[in-house]
Write a protein that binds this DNA or RNA. Sequence first.
DNA 1: ATTAGATCTTACCATACATCAAGGCACAGG
DNA 2: CCTGTGCCTTGATGTATGGTAAGATCTAAT
Lengths: 209, 209
Amino acid sequence: MIILIILKPKLPVVLDNFKLYLSEKSDLTEAAIDKILKEVRVESIQKGEFLLSAGDVCKHAFFTEKGLLRAFTVDESGKEHIIQFAPENWLISDRSSIYFNAPSDLFIEAIENSTVIFISTEFMGVVSEMSSKFRKANDRALQSHIRQLQHRINQLLGATAEERYLTFIQKYPDLLLRVPLWMIASYLGITPESLSRVRKDLAKKNFKS
Amino acid sequence: MIILIILKPKLPVVLDNFKLYLSEKSDLTEAAIDKILKEVRVESIQKGEFLLSAGDVCKHAFFTEKGLLRAFTVDESGKEHIIQFAPENWLISDRSSIYFNAPSDLFIEAIENSTVIFISTEFMGVVSEMSSKFRKANDRALQSHIRQLQHRINQLLGATAEERYLTFIQKYPDLLLRVPLWMIASYLGITPESLSRVRKDLAKKNFKS
DNA sequence: ATTAGATCTTACCATACATCAAGGCACAGG
DNA sequence: CCTGTGCCTTGATGTATGGTAAGATCTAAT
């Protein structure tokens, strides 16, 4: 048997998204940002690879430079429940696990081949020192996170599967095209079969797209 | 008609719980705490009175010195969904509303006659300036809050009504005795009738307490 | 080209929970 | 004492969603 290995020249990774992110959220000069970028840990993650598994202590937040990640839990009966998707320019992590240094109950997995930036607590500390704007942006993100969690709880308490689906496609129209439906079902808290029926009903009601 | 008004002498309000709270969460001297306590806004809230209504911008966090508060939303079909209970020593507020200066979608109501301390952003700022321990304790509370919201989402996604009820009484055994069952049902995201049946089933299975 | 695997759909039946209606109980107010 | 009101329960029935199984596509690997 002949094995053919093709070695592509390793291309320098482009971090345009993360660079833009830093320049928007902080008041650092471009020079300072470029310097930071050189120190930052970047990895290419293949579809299906895990950045965090339940039981591990989460040590980084992950910034999706390219691709798509998801965070999910697995309950006692083995069912997955998707907590969050993270396409380009999103941060994903287990905040409590990082903060309390406690084992996470989340899995974080790439669902497309992705380029991911590893953001450590130290990194956050350093940049926060350098830029008060950055600090404020992070405060704000934290509050938004809480707001979003509240909203999700409300939906789960009060809305039907169909309503939740409609909210989802309105909030994340791009994800609808990139994520398999069964994952959307998991995010919504229903089975893929139910989602299929919901979509059928909506189609019957002349719902477009 | 004769109207009889009895004027009780206004008793000085005791703030033992809040005082203890401050001394645990901060490294301030007792003298400093006593000074703070004199400035703090305290109100007696009758059962059924509201501290916040949907549409208002939330201006304070509320510390329950005595009594019991609840926060809830009302959905389009008029159904209430309880977000949180706050017995003694708990803080309750709409963080996002305060932070973003945006109209809240929460109601906060006293479900027992209560003594409530109004905690403004300025108050938080002042005490945070005085004590780094206090600042850290607040950070920690914020992270715990997120953790708790995550947990609730997980329960709603994955657990049955019965499981959620069992979690509730294990986590808040004291509330079970103080809160009407229909409110617990609302917190769990089920109807009072369903909760009644869940309890009946548990009783059949020899479940104690 | 063939196969295997993943995804999505559909049909049928099962179950959890909601809804509606009625009744019991406790407690407060006239 | 009676009466209303709020809370809880129970039964009958409805509905949304789950579970199982099968088939249709589609893609990727052999």
